[in-house]
Write a protein that binds this DNA or RNA. Structure first.
Lengths: 264, 264
DNA sequence: AGTTGTGAAATGATTCACAGCC
DNA sequence: GGCTGTGAATCATTTCACAACT
């Protein structure tokens, strides 16, 4: 993709002095929370992708993989993959590669997939309903332990063996069932309130599908999936290609608001 | 959130020589495709978020906003917001702020939302069905122009006024209806094939919900939404908090594969 | 020979802090 | 006085390239 920029000046020869280097960090989670996080966020997201590839290799009975092959399958640069894996303290064998089953276990352990995480899903509307029935969650170690909504027509119904309860019960039920991850699939207006309830029930990780910025106390992790954003980013690329964009100069486009595409 | 790191050594006084600085890039899309992209990817994603806030401000009849307020509502740093907006050539007024309706129009224009983009959705299973009925797409200027699946039980059914057609027709129908964005919501196994069909139909932007890495020719933009990845990233944070992670040292955890949480 | 692990360079993104302008 | 626009500093991430090891 990127054009080869030709030969670049060689780096100066390596000085023989080997710097100390800590090799493996002493670990031991220093502070309560934000003190030390040796594994960067970007790496964590990629680990999940590596895991998917590893699992399929494992199913194929493959014993080892090289960083090159694994990286290609995951769609990343091999150096990046090696660095990622070195960060979680994994060890491949030089000249050979990584042991597939061992690496799989290491990645799973790092991601905390040793034990399942009970998930609460709030908002069983269109999207929420599909998510609840979407096998993906339970299948992958994230059993849906509770469903909530405010619609009386939905409360009491059973989806995939789980009864929908009223959102007022979030605090109690989540705490009782040991929910660790909350999924918000409500309309934007309700999202913050729902989020607050989840937090007060002790949920520290939230996946937000509602098109709003959730504010949470420090120590609570929110990840966002916003379909409108994704579509609009793609729209940007379409426009770029077609040259539709009015050459982002200082002058504003003449038309003030062509169409109110964005309603709420 | 972040603790104030106290007074930092003052930057050295600004030397009076003002460097040339290009101010506004000469623009004019140099090469065919990867040559120049003045707006960074990260900014584009945030523009969509700003737009949401702007729209709601517009609905409230607000005339102007300050970068501070807009940034707070979008959940970002105000300097970042100002830099983002300066990149798209917008102009606020010093001492006043940004004109809401004008800024809205500028962001919309940059994102290419002037005209709607016809969307094709492939895979009308659990998730795909919900996406098709999810008003979010059409409502925001991304009308679903075509639906595809391979399941004979689904082909021929009508969802929200659009008939589901067989996936074999992707090439023809997409080209005919001027589809510019494709959404892949099939199982992983079918995703690459579907993607190839979309590409050969001229679709240059793809939103992928299938848990696979799609390979596409240069010039095609793929964005990925992977629920398993999101959940696993959250799982990582849960584990970090609880200290469940077995101290990522060089020694592997004793158990080889605790549970096959990841099936396919 | 083949492949990992990793300093160090390169690139990219974010934040600071202040000049310039209304 | 208030607020934008932006160079420069800081921070994060990616990539390179090669020594170390099997």
């Amino acid at each position: 993709m990127t054009v080869d920029r030709g030969t670049r000046p060689a780096r100066r020869a390596v000085p023989s002095s080997r710097p100390p280097g800590v090799d493996l960090a002493p670990d031991a989670d220093g502070g309560e929370e934000s003190a030390s996080r040796p594994v960067p966020e970007a790496t964590v997201a990629r680990l999940a992708v590596y895991l998917r590839v590893l699992t399929s290799l494992l199913a194929d009975g493959r014993g080892t993989v090289s960083s090159e092959e694994l990286a290609a399958a995951a769609g990343v640069n091999s150096a990046k993959l090696r660095k990622d894996l070195s960060l979680i303290g994994s060890s491949g064998v030089r000249g050979v590669g990584y042991d597939v089953s061992r690496l799989t276990a290491e990645v799973e352990a790092t991601l905390g997939l040793d034990s399942p995480h009970a998930v609460a899903l709030v908002g069983v509307g269109n999207l929420g309903h599909a998510l609840a029935r979407y096998g993906g969650f339970a299948q992958r170690g994230f059993p849906v332990a509770a469903l909530f909504d405010v619609d009386p027509a939905l409360v009491g119904t059973v989806i995939d063996g789980v009864e929908v309860q009223h959102a007022d019960a979030i605090d109690v039920v989540c705490a009782a069932r040991g929910v660790t991850i909350g999924v918000v699939a409500t309309p934007a207006e309700a999202a913050q309130r729902v989020c607050d309830h989840l937090v007060s029930a002790g949920v520290r990780s939230i996946l937000n599908f509602a098109p709003t910025v959730l504010s949470v106390p420090a120590g609570v992790e929110v990840r966002k999936v916003d379909l409108a954003v994704e579509m609009q980013v793609l729209s940007f690329h379409v426009a770029r290609r077609h040259g539709t964009v009015p050459a982002a100069g200082p002058a504003a486009p003449s038309r003030p608001t062509p169409r109110e595409v964005f309603s709420r």
